[in-house]
Simulated assay, not measured.
Amino acid sequence: IKPKNFGVIIRTVSEGKGVAELQKDLLDSISKWESFMKKLPETEPAKRVWGEMDRTSTLIRDILSTDFTNVYVNDQALFEDIRSYVHEISPEMERIVKHYKHKEPIFDHFGVEKQIKNGFGKTVNLAGGAYLVVEHTEALHVIDVNSGNRTASKENQEENALQVNKEAAKEIARQLRLRDMGGIVVIDFIDMHKPANRKVLFDHLRELMLLDRAKHTILPPSKFGLVQITRQRVRPEMNIVTVEKCPTCDGTGEIKASIVLMDDIESNMTYILREQNEKNVTLCVHPYIAAFIKKGLVSLQWKWFFKFGQWVKIKEVSSYHLTEFHFLSSKDEEIKL
Score class of each variant (00 low, 15 high):
Lys122Glu: 15
Asn165Thr: 03
Asp332Gln: 05
Asp203Cys: 02
Pro221Tyr: 02
Leu226Ala: 11
Tyr72Trp: 08
Met209Thr: 05
Glu15Val: 10
Lys307Arg: 15
Leu300Cys: 15
Phe189Ile: 01
Glu334Thr: 11
Glu42Phe: 12
Tyr72Lys: 02
Phe110Asn: 12
Ser319Arg: 05
Pro45His: 06
Phe308Val: 06
Thr323Gln: 03
Asp81Pro: 00
Glu52Val: 01
Ser35Asp: 15
Ala130Gln: 13
Val112Pro: 06
Ile335Gln: 07
Asp203Ser: 03
Gly16Glu: 12
Pro45Asp: 08
Glu44Asn: 11
His102Arg: 13
Asn149Gln: 12
Glu155Pro: 08
Asp67Glu: 08
Gln276Pro: 02
Phe68Arg: 01
Gln301Phe: 10
Gly7Glu: 13
Val97Pro: 00
Leu210Met: 07
Ile30Ser: 07
His204Met: 05
Ile289Trp: 02
Ser29His: 14
Phe68Tyr: 05
Tyr271Thr: 14
Val145Gly: 03
Thr69Pro: 02
Lys17Cys: 14
Gln175Gly: 06
Gly16His: 07
Ala77Gly: 05
Pro236His: 14
Ile272Ala: 08
Val186Glu: 02
Phe292Arg: 08
Asp188Gly: 05
Asp264Phe: 10
Trp50Leu: 04
His204Glu: 09
Glu244Met: 11
Lys39Tyr: 08
Lys24Met: 03
Asn146Ser: 08
Lys245Val: 15
Cys246Ser: 05
Val73Glu: 00
Asn268Ala: 02
Glu88Trp: 11
Lys101Ser: 08
Lys331Glu: 12
Arg274Gly: 13
Ile9Gln: 07
Gly119Met: 09
Tyr85Ser: 00
Gly182Asp: 03
Ser90Ile: 08
Val49Asn: 05
Phe325Cys: 03
Met238Gln: 13
Glu21Ala: 10
Thr270Ile: 07
Gly253Asn: 12
Ala196Glu: 10
Ser29Lys: 13
Met53His: 08
Val13Asn: 12
Gly16Asp: 11
Thr323Glu: 01
Asp75Ala: 09
Ser318Trp: 04
Val298Ile: 14
Gly251Cys: 05
Glu158Asp: 14
